[in-house]
Write a protein that binds this DNA or RNA. Structure first.
Lengths: 210, 210
DNA sequence: CGCTCCAACTTGACACCGTCTAGAAACTTC
DNA sequence: GAAGTTTCTAGACGGTGTCAAGTTGGAGCG
């Protein structure tokens, strides 16, 4: 264990699993220095390969970053789907899913900085769209549940947009992305408080009244 | 008029008003190519000066972009304050201010991409903080009005965060930043529709009921 | 007017970046 | 073990941000 040098994973061929190593290094770098501090050569350096190695797997910078954002949406969609499964009622599922979103953002700041940026990635990439859609539909299912259980006249599309925009705006306002927070403890706590407040506003706003 | 060559403004010294020209060129460039497509040398080129000229006024890239973001918050704060003055009641003022936010974002995509990014700018800069605070306080005043008029138990801070996050998330989700929309007409229309929906959710959520 | 001074800008250099090309290295397959 | 293919390396190119030094042109003053 202690002898393991760097890239790890006995994996497949020359270098272990280079695509995964590159994604991990990229996420780490962006979490440290923000999306503008990203550098393909620095990522290659951290993964212990030459500066041109990434190109072979991802084509160019946009390719690597799109791949990283896609991974982020896959993680997010998984977390949201799991949260949606474990709630007691619609309201509980919405609250849990909001927490899942925020906590994923907190744990994967490098991924989220990209996912949210709408810049430097190819947002028409098939896999990317598929994972992003899956995350969106996890929320949509919950909103439909709220409509059916609490308010038949609820505009599902508008409510989805509203919920998504709110939580995304909160995450961004909280400054969770770029530069990892020094004191993640209190950040996480205040974030949860805001989630609770938001849930209250959202539920009231959707006419549920509970 | 037709004879005006480029930098215009008989202005002050050598080159007219270079800082303003550089900010304008930077906003244009970011609106065209996104924050990642920004280049100090390209900005200097568009302003018709040498590649090192910007450094003399702004120090480095971060200095120029922080200055541009500050200008953006000044424009936003002005627009919000004016909208807040012209509403009939608290609800009308909130709705108008939301529209002002979104329309400013639509008109100044280069500025907003920066303001929202939390990257590439120095968010502890004094002037920057002052203008951003002014914009935030314009919203805060309205929320306080809503509390006084409609719901004495409203948590003002939480409501402010919620409103700000919602509108900011909406603007970002709408993809208004980076690449100017081809068809701004329909974009603007659907944006207004969303603003209306959001206002409904927000007002209900804050327990106003109207 | 001539002179100095100084802010505004230019020029050139440096290291770093993304990408392209050609070639080496290692694993697969027969 | 030889051929072929994928994986990665090495080097070159133009472009970028920033730093150092030099040039320009207007302002203030004798």
């Amino acid at each position: 264990m202690a002898g393991m040098v760097e890239v790890a994973a006995k994996g497949a061929y020359h270098h272990g699993n280079l695509p995964d190593s590159l994604r991990a290094a990229a996420a780490e770098l962006i979490a440290e220095k923000g999306t503008s501090g990203f550098s393909l050569r620095e990522v290659a350096r951290r993964a212990g390969v030459s500066h041109a190695a990434p190109a072979h797997h991802f084509g160019d910078t946009e390719g690597l970053l799109t791949s990283l954002a896609t991974e982020g949406y896959r993680i997010l969609a998984d977390a949201m789907e799991e949260a949606a499964r474990s709630g007691d009622d619609s309201i509980g599922r919405l609250l849990g899913t909001g927490r899942a979103y925020a906590h994923t953002a907190l744990e994967k700041p490098g991924h989220f900085a990209l996912m949210i940026s709408n810049d430097q990635i190819c947002d028409t990439n098939e896999a990317f769209v598929a994972e992003a859609t899956r995350a969106y539909e996890a929320l949509q299912a919950i909103i439909i549940g709220i409509r059916d259980e609490l308010n038949p006249s609820l505009d599902v599309d508008a409510a989805c947009t509203f919920c998504w925009a709110s939580i995304q705006g909160l995450v961004q306002l909280s400054g969770l992305l770029d530069k990892v927070a020094d004191d993640t403890g209190t950040t996480k706590a205040s974030l949860d408080e805001n989630i609770e407040s938001f849930a209250h506003f959202l539920i009231e706003g959707m006419g549920g009244g509970a």
